[in-house]
Amino acid sequence: MNTATDRAPATISAPPPGDDAAWAARLAAREPAALREMIARHGAALHRLAYRMTGDAHEAEDIVQEALLRLWDHAPALAGKHPPGSQAAARLRLGGWLQRVATNLALDRLRRTRRLSGGEVPEEEDNAPLADVVIAAGERDNLARAAVLALPDRQRAAIVLTYYEELPNAEAAEAMDMNIKAFESLLHRARMALRQALAAQGDAP
């Protein structure tokens, strides 16, 4: 399990302009190597995003797989809209497209789970035996996890995208299909809720 060092998406290097359009064209041509490259580039970041949204590693894997398969399915349409060498190709960002899909999939699953269970998503118990050396870290992990999972779904998504994935507000708003003003208001409320949760734990922010 990663520690706090996995917060920054430093592993995803910014592709050169138009590069994603070339990858989309290769995906549209049904090249498995292209899909493998997309998994290598974006899989980890998507998994972090999905896990922090759902709090469930298996659910997060399903979300990442579904997002990548949707990219595989939509690649012909994306390649058609962004032909390599065009101005539209320079604007295509497959990472942002995947983040938007993964965020929506996570929100959909949380909504569906809540509707089926009729209440809040229960915090999952970790039944694995804890070693003494990781007890302290585990307590801190559980505290942060509880605070993040206690947020409303969209506020949680805002925190995950901006704090953990370090996206600019504009890109995070785009990933959530919101305008920038509404997103900033949502992010403001999420930070307030987190500070209240931290204050409730007796630790001053």
Partner: peptide
């Protein structure tokens, strides 16, 4: 302190063989 608390929420790595599963599903 809030950042320290949030940094404690670590995410697991993708399991080994994930890429092969996705490729097979594709």
């Amino acid at each position: 302190p809030l950042a320290r608390m949030l940094d404690g929420y670590a995410a697991p790595e993708l399991p080994a063989g994930f890429a092969e599963r996705v490729l097979a599903a594709a």
